[in-house]
Design a protein around this nucleic acid. Sequence first.
DNA 1: CCAAAAGTGTTTCACTTACACCCATGA
DNA 2: TCATGGGTGTAAGTGAAACACTTTTGG
Lengths: 228, 228
Amino acid sequence: MSFHYQYARPALAVDCVVFGLDEDLQVLLIQRDIPPFEGRWALPGGFVRMDETLDEAAKRELEEETGVTRVYLEQLYTFSELDRDPRERVVSVAYYALVKLSDHRVKAATDAREAAWFSVIDLPKLAFDHDRVLATALARLKGNVTYKPIGFELLPPKFTLSQLQRMYEVILEKELDKRNFRKKVLTMGFLEELDEVEQDVAHRAARLYRFDKKQYHELMKQGFHFEL
Amino acid sequence: MSFHYQYARPALAVDCVVFGLDEDLQVLLIQRDIPPFEGRWALPGGFVRMDETLDEAAKRELEEETGVTRVYLEQLYTFSELDRDPRERVVSVAYYALVKLSDHRVKAATDAREAAWFSVIDLPKLAFDHDRVLATALARLKGNVTYKPIGFELLPPKFTLSQLQRMYEVILEKELDKRNFRKKVLTMGFLEELDEVEQDVAHRAARLYRFDKKQYHELMKQGFHFEL
DNA sequence: CCAAAAGTGTTTCACTTACACCCATGA
DNA sequence: TCATGGGTGTAAGTGAAACACTTTTGG
């Protein structure tokens, strides 16, 4: 590699896989309004600028295209197949994030494009290689959710233990035992029991809990190991 | 993003963190023979060509610069700090690999550069942000080794249980109980017990074992979960 | 015969799993 | 009063951790 490198370069882009939780696990998509893949749904994303890092580019593109802001984006994988974009060589760094769907239910796209939530179990065929990107993100989510408390990002600040359990069941695609689940998460010691219950339900109201981030980090420092 | 995207682009490079095992955990470095950081040690790597994927670029650069070939490179992380290269904007995709040090003890660099193994616990200051890249790779290795049998890549095809245990101790930086360790790895059922013992040792010769990849994948399919 | 590492079992304790009924509430 | 989910305990089994001595071999 010489001092002045001036061969042709691939273009560099970012794509964002943003998950939310409803009955199902949901993902945020935008509808493309220009070729290629005009009209097809795609992951929000775009090209990286010279004066921003990849993290910054991902955050900016996500906000520009979907209005979603203040989310923690984590780098997922960099995709570099030669033909992943029919126009030219584009290498894309994928990010993923978990958001409280309630905070982003109506998304005001700042440009003309349409953004919408889709259940991951009933998706349209996506543009580019975004099916593959999404599959990678889903696998990562499934793999991480059991040993990092990332799932809490999907829930509102106050939640019931049943909501928490349903979240794990949806992501892991398997049922969990209610008593064992409650025992486990409560003994971990970072759920703050509130003196409040859920409202407007047609049955006994469940107690609300809050994820105590400080306490969690305190436990981490002491070598605590979260699992399941 | 317009059809013809022609803004300035970052250069795109790959860097390879290749681990080997001796008494300590080792990493393969090359000495730079041009500025910037002339004379400093760095991770092998270089710019990505238009006709190759990132995986291919990493493999090619590693071979060109160190002679190391036929290793399984896994993508690690993409680094994009604005000033990580003093010449110009360079985004670099890092890869990591584990190799049997015995196979690569003498490395014949194909060009003039020097390549050498360094213990990770006694490293020179590296060029660019390679200290950070290496730290990321070490963290990943430590995190993965307990629940994927990747560590076997560091050992020769036939190894003793003590060698296997030492490998885990070196990577995890903690001591393990001999009896419990042997019990555990043997009950997992993918170690093939050979009718051979190690040679030329000044004490009782230990039995040799082989990692049975087929059996491991068979167990995986049946939902087996490797850990520690 | 000495040094050096190989090899081997048992007990204790903690955690995981399986499992079923009563309770509180709003409609 | 009924339907709906909320909330609770125990027993059995499995796996992790702690722990020390004998065996083999070459020098």
